[in-house]
């Protein structure tokens, strides 16, 4: 009894394609529903991915970030710096002029991201303060932040407390990381369910075909494979579509993203290639396994 041969593989592929073409509308419905479910998961992964990047970036920042009002002269900068430096427990102080800030932003985002459309003074000048002892007491940091925001220091536009924000960011990140698993499990189960129901419907529609195939000497492999390949293909196309949808949403939010990047010195990025490929691979295997399992189940219970 010969095992799989090339002619057989060709025939299986042909049957897969013919089977899919004969039920084209069903294919679209299937791919669309898989894509819809997967995009929720993809969006969550994307959010988690960017939160990781954001907190990583912020970890490098100081304890207090002082945004200055525009149009301050160089001498005033220096006066302010020395005043701030005189504050107790300041370990490190770095001044960034609007030009420097812009340059740094362009470097961190890649030069072509902002293009030349930005005016030089678009970013505020900032002074970054780092305190001696890695102060963990938020009350103390807040006290200092308030000090800087007194009306007398009217060059200060606003103050960001790096640590407090970072703590909040971590909290949010953990929440998302947790939900990522829940959503992942939920999407996974829904996709499995949809595939098993689809295979069931498919086998029901094809019951006559399966009956005939059985009577002309088709092996189980020959009958099952097209269904399994079809499931894998649908899951694969569905997940690519999901990634594409999420990416497009990110793209359509470009203006928002630019505002975000001004505010946080951060620009959200699409999922890395590795993450995207793993996402597609995982979802394809899910489609294959789900279709195979339910095809075996329903074929055995139909007879």
């Amino acid at each position: 009894m010969s095992l799989v041969n090339f002619g057989m593989l060709r025939a299986v592929l042909r049957q897969t394609i013919l089977g899919m073409v004969r039920r084209l509308p069903t294919q679209w419905v299937m791919i669309a529903s898989v894509a819809a479910m997967q995009s929720i998961l993809a969006a969550t992964i994307l959010l988690a991915f960017n939160l990781d990047r954001l907190s990583e970036q912020w970890e490098r920042g100081g304890d207090l970030l002082v945004f200055l009002k525009p149009g301050i002269t160089q001498t005033r900068y220096e006066q302010l710096s020395s005043q701030l430096e005189a504050l107790a427990q300041v370990k490190n102080l770095s001044l960034k002029t609007p030009k420097e800030a812009l340059k740094e932003l362009q470097e961190s985002l890649g030069n072509d991201f902002l293009g030349d459309s930005f005016e030089e003074e678009v970013l505020p000048a900032t002074i970054e303060l780092e305190f001696v002892d890695d102060l963990d007491d938020p009350a103390l940091v807040e006290f200092r932040a308030n000090l800087l925001q007194r009306p007398e220091v009217d060059e200060v536009e606003s103050v960001i407390e790096g640590r407090g924000l970072l703590a909040k960011l971590y909290e949010f990140r953990e929440l998302i990381a947790f939900w990522r698993w829940i959503i992942g499990a939920w999407v996974g189960l829904s996709v499995m369910f949809v595939f098993s129901q689809f295979v069931r419907l498919n086998l029901h529609q094809r019951r006559r075909e399966v009956e005939v195939l059985n009577s002309v000497g088709a092996t189980r492999f020959f009958i099952l494979s097209p269904l399994v390949i079809e499931g894998g293909l649908q899951a694969c196309i569905g997940s690519i579509t999901a990634l594409w949808i999420v990416e497009n949403i990110l793209d359509s939010q470009k203006v928002g993203a630019e505002m975000l990047s001004e505010l946080l010195l951060f620009s959200p990025e699409p999922l890395s290639l590795t993450l995207s490929l793993s996402f597609i691979a995982l979802s394809t295997s899910l489609g294959v396994v789900a279709s195979w399992r339910s095809a075996v189940y329903f074929l055995t219970h139909q007879e």
């Binding site: 006559r208 075909e209 002309v216 000497g217 092996t219």
Partner: peptide, 30 residues
């Protein structure tokens, strides 16, 4: 070769495709 009393043909397939099916299941070339 079995000819069923109810024939067991696939009605929306062409005559040719129906007749080719046993060979397709064995993996003969088109």
């Amino acid at each position: 070769g079995f000819i069923y009393q109810d024939l067991r043909l696939l009605h929306n397939w062409t005559a040719e495709d129906n007749v080719m099916l046993p060979l397709e299941a064995i993996g003969h070339s088109r």
